[in-house]
């Protein structure tokens, strides 16, 4: 099964890259842009017999390696 993992910085954690992107967007004339946050997207294939099992496995991967839960949240989608 294919899993998609979206990793984002937690609220309250400063995101200097997001700020730089926001500055660049406004410099290009895109008005009304606020709260730009940069994250990560990871896609992987996982061997599992059903969606629940796959999700559980990928969540364990997030806890152990893919995300740093001190500063990041993650969301797993099985597709």
């Amino acid at each position: 099964m294919k899993a998609k993992v979206i990793i984002t910085l937690k609220n309250g954690v400063l995101d200097p890259q997001g700020k730089a992107i926001e500055g660049a967007l406004s410099g290009l004339g895109f008005a009304g842009v606020d709260n730009v946050r940069q994250g990560k997207f990871i896609e992987l294939d996982v061997d599992a017999s059903n969606e629940g099992e796959a999700k559980k496995a990928v969540e364990a991967m997030c806890e152990k390696l893919l995300a740093n839960t001190v500063i990041e949240n993650y969301r797993v989608e099985i597709v």
């Binding site: 954690v13 400063l14 200097p16 890259q17 730089a20 740093n68 001190v70 500063i71």
Partner: peptide, 17 residues
Amino acid sequence: LTESGLLPGALMRNAGL
């Protein structure tokens, strides 16, 4: 050491990028 859990917290991208 922070990533391994031996020390608390995290080291993030420098504020000045």
